[in-house]
Design a protein around this nucleic acid. Structure first.
Lengths: 263, 263
DNA sequence: TCAAGTTTGTGTTGACAGGACAAGAACCTC
DNA sequence: GAGGTTCTTGTCCTGTCAACACAAACTTGA
């Protein structure tokens, strides 16, 4: 061990190795019907000029979540409180930062429609990027942040299947189609409007009707009922994205080899 | 910030706050048809004498997983490699350790049938405890380890629903009932043998038949086919534990008010 | 005023999955 | 053999869901 102050249970904090602890935040929002994440441009080496997740040191007497919120605000100028903040995982490969050992605790957050991606506050530049662009590796990212983002995207996609978190992307009052467009943006897929409507309106306490309806003057069509989020956190039977592991191709309506007999 | 070496992006590792990073491991195994976890008795203050998760410092040039494995082996004397090791989460409430700021990265692991809970190696005592006992708060635990264990138990329970991890609790070759008893132990519930059998044998590449059968001399009954784990990591349609959110009580067989008409 | 278009919401239908339960299959002991 | 135990398959029935049709409610334009 080479550390003679070490107690028999290997746990004496007064002689701890030099490891820095930081937090990083993957912030999701939906703009223009696309899932976007908030990045800042690094102002110093290493990886100067590359885009990175907002983040920084955890202070000595600061909780991890508090540090994540503080860095999100400080580095991006975002003033709105996230509608959701959740730990994603901790990344501590010894050489992930070339300067020294840095262990980072990653969080992911949902921000309701961020009107304008405000320029960063701390002399840094902040901007929104669509997830499909990031997934296409169209952006050079600092450190292992590409990997962290990849895992965060997978997390938010799967969480929408079995939780009611999608409503957190919406304003406090919204319609079923607005909610559907959240799912379509996050999953990057098209969803049948009728089945989706039935699913979310019958899921217990997912949505609460406010009694109101939209003014259709804007876009034509039947006015939609307005809902606010219910108390339920989980969806009893998940909404499945992409029936990809479709057991059988399940060809609907096999070509009628014989004229349909009247029944 | 009060830290003039801080760069504009708030990220200069040469001036990091004094925070120690440790790992803790929640190790699950099944003994005597019960889900058990491995704990060590603390040999020094604080919480001296209390039971705790095996864990300790992350060394400067050591990965987090490597540190978890090392501490598991060092503190418990376990020689077998875990069949699964996965990050659970990171716990960093500022006052969770009274001596200084300690951020711990928790892992959970699966160990196939540990024959004997070997006494600890590092002058510490190691032992297995059934999860139901720990859940009943029958044990005083150090720090916030009770909370960590609670979250680990929930994690392993839910992972068994949609992954094939249950097989990792079994020896390399096993029968369907052995696998069922894993589910029953982890979920602390009874499962219908027939439906379970159909479910796991038809789930694509969950199990692979070795061709062999058990020798029934031991316990009587029809010999069981022997399987080894397949390549699949996920179960296409999850096995649900406790149909608790049962939509309707679904009274089977409503009392026949009228004699059953032949159809 | 009416047709056409658009969006919202509901009905219908057929396939499928899964729980309750029964029963067959393959072995043991007595 | 009889009876017991365990493994494995079959049956029935119900709930869920995707596909798709269609009704409802509104706008716009002829």
């Amino acid at each position: 061990m080479g550390c003679d102050t070490k107690a028999p249970d290997g746990y004496d904090p007064r002689a701890y190795p030099p490891v820095a602890v930081t937090v990083d935040v993957v912030t999701f929002t939906i703009v223009d019907n696309q899932l976007q994440i908030l990045l800042v441009r690094r102002g110093q080496r290493p990886d100067k000029g590359l885009w990175a997740l907002p983040g920084g040191f955890v202070r000595e007497d600061e909780g991890l979540e508090a540090a994540a919120l503080r860095e999100l605000h400080e580095e991006t100028g975002v003033v709105a409180e996230p509608r959701h903040l959740e730990q994603l995982g901790t990344y501590g490969t010894p050489d992930r930062d070339p300067r020294m050992r840095v262990v980072t605790v990653a969080y992911w957050a949902i921000l309701a429609n961020l009107p304008e991606p405000k320029g960063g506050g701390d002399a840094a530049e902040a901007s929104l990027f669509s997830v499909v662009m990031v997934e296409a590796d169209a952006l050079k990212l600092a450190f292992d942040h590409g990997n962290i983002i990849k895992e965060a995207v997978e997390r938010v996609r799967s969480k929408l299947e079995y939780t009611t978190l999608a409503a957190q992307f919406c304003p406090p009052e919204f319609t079923v189609s607005q909610l559907r467009r959240v799912y379509e943006a996050v999953w990057n897929a098209r969803i049948d409007p009728g089945n989706f409507h039935r699913k979310v309106t019958t899921s217990p306490d997912f949505l609460r009707s406010t009694g109101g309806s939209t003014d259709p003057r804007a876009r034509g069509g039947r006015p939609a009922k307005i809902y606010s989020p219910g108390e339920a956190e989980y969806i009893s039977s998940p909404i499945m994205r992409s029936p990809s592991p479709r057991p059988t191709p399940r060809r609907r309506r096999p070509p009628p080899e014989q004229p349909k007999p009247p029944r």
